[in-house]
Design a protein around this nucleic acid. Structure first.
Lengths: 207, 207, 207, 207
DNA sequence: TATGAATGAGTTTTCATTCAT
DNA sequence: TATGAATGAAAACTCATTCAT
């Protein structure tokens, strides 16, 4: 265990160092993949030394999980904040998520890509489950209000997420604009499928 | 330098060796992940020596790609063979895929999991694109026949795949039976969304 | 995780590879210390590649423990095999250990140096404890036979080991010959201390 | 580049800081080992920042050596101060060391453990050699006075130290009380071995 | 065709030390 | 004197791939 005289540290705002690492890792993980990204690459892109990663994150694995949970927390925001009828709320959430996918494609991919699922720890899985539960309870109250068709609220929530996930990833990849006709087609399609109204064609209130 | 007597090769049907390697790798890749699976593990589960893998596949990477393309080929079968109206064909394909997910969960996951996308080579990506194109052209002819609602045929095909993918993965994970109410809910939901008919509730002919 | 084409393996008798690693690690650990010895050094001295270590030992730590236990097993031999009165047996053991220290200084140091104690796992500690127990039971029977003075058999065994340890390390370091007068002085000294006989000066039967 | 306001140094008696570092390092080195102890751990236990260590000690290595030499100096005290016949002096020294082992187990271990030998610099080795020389000259004068049996004075000193080392480490580990029967057994044993008197059973004057 | 010991570049992680504040 | 974020060389360990048998 030899320790040569180390180069003196470049001083920097410590908050910024962490943020740079987060951004660097998020971009690399979501573009190249977790295993394809090495810690030297993360450090280089953040403009810090490799060892600096470990002053902020206990391991590469925990770094991934922190990124993931931050993503889930971000997705939860519009779910909690949205108000009104079920369709309005779902539209608001989808709009928020699409905008997120546009502004921060990496964050959107981190949560929706499914490539990371297996690498997640217990806390991260719980965080994702809580997001799912929030959506399910929203759909459940929509059912009570007679807005959503019969069937398990969980299944309808799943259904909605499966489609919106597809939309978000397309937007994050830059292959669809947030207002692409295909986006509208899909969101209207999901609602038509879920809606209790025989004719669900009318535009939602907040569009 | 002394040379230990090398173990003689265990005699086996050579075709069977390859198949065992395929099965072993498929199961391991889809359960643990590509990077989490080592070549010694693949060999051990197949009951062969490590070096034997390289008699049958040029590299671990190419092994993955062969598995993937075999999966895509398998998925293409019911698309090519199905006959009748668009809804009937979609139902037949979904039924076939669900059954596949039940019988060979690994194969279903290999194609749908999305975890492997990044590791695929050109040929594999093309194979997947061809499956998408076949589905799209099917939906396109459905549109010409007035069965499918206005909108891009590609978008409707995407929509359908996004939902069926969800169903197939649930079945492959054993969390849903192929005839689970949630499965019916989702498949009916997709059709209700796509169908040109104002009331798309009638049961498809082949159910 | 990139894997460049590896150099082809040099074929060697596998038994010899392990033995070379054992010898290399034993010599390095006991001369430089465990932490001061790196895995590249062990491999280089054994004339193999670094990764080869890990085909034979799960970790550097386990390698150390295997060396240690092999040493303890070696020490136990004369304890089990020696016959006769207590003094004769102790002399035979000390003679065997001194000869071992001369022929295989590294092995002797591995067990007696005390530098490794803290790095040992449960099994290794048990192995050492068993050696101690064997010596203690030998002294205990010497006490029953009236050969050894009153006092705890464990304490007398400890006493004997403390002194013989010193002798063995001196011999292993090449600072004392096995028949150095200082060696005789110490061994006679221990016996004089332990012996129940008022005058314990007589030479033991087997010298 | 922004600079966060640096925490002002906690005001403390500067002497106390050094002492706290010494105590912290001594305890950690002797309980966990040198390599197993990190500089952040030493600093944390001393209640100071990592960098502060280097205001007081040039390196971790030099810190160890200072601790060691302080220990040797402490051991030398009773050797220098003891008066009377050889046996009385040896008893006094052993008593002092046992008491030290009880009050400051870490210091006792630092000198006797043997785990640190290899990490010592020239000055430290010299310091230890001087302690040995002092003991040897004491035994030599005992020989001249006819109190100690024939044989090299160095060898008898070695013999005595080998046994007392064992006792001191047992006491430091809390496994033996300073007045444990085993302690008495060993110390009487050493003297019986070394003593020129045919019957060395009489209690020493100072007990 | 089958074997499996050997390879070594590459990976993650550690930690004594520095210096702007 | 004290701080503590940053450094980066070096450590242990991994594993896809080769080839003499």
């Amino acid at each position: 265990v030899t320790h040569p005289t180390p180069k003196p540290p470049r001083r920097r705002d410590p908050k910024s160092t962490r943020e740079r690492l987060v951004r660097s890792a998020l971009d690399l993980f979501t573009s190249k993949g977790y295993h394809e990204t090495t810690t030297p690459q993360i450090a280089a892109r953040a403009g810090v030394a490799e060892g600096t990663i470990y002053r902020h994150f206990a391991s590469k694995d925990l770094l991934l999980n922190e990124l993931y949970r931050a993503g889930v927390r971000r997705l939860l925001k519009p779910v909690v904040e949205s108000k009104g009828g079920t369709r309005d709320r779902l539209e608001a959430i989808a709009a928020d998520w699409r905008e997120l996918a546009l502004r921060d494609a990496s964050l959107a991919r981190m949560v929706f890509d499914g490539r990371f699922t297996q690498l997640l720890d217990e806390r991260s899985r719980t965080a994702w489950a809580e997001l799912g539960a929030a959506l399910e309870s929203m759909v459940a109250s929509g059912k009570s209000a007679g807005e959503v068709r019969a069937g398990g609220a969980g299944a309808w929530a799943d259904f909605w997420v499966a489609v919106v996930r597809h939309v978000v990833l397309k937007v994050a990849d830059g292959r669809w604009k947030p207002d692409d006709p295909a986006v509208r087609l899909m969101l209207d399609g999901v609602w038509r499928a879920m809606s209790a109204a025989p004719d669900a064609l009318q535009t939602p209130a907040n569009l």
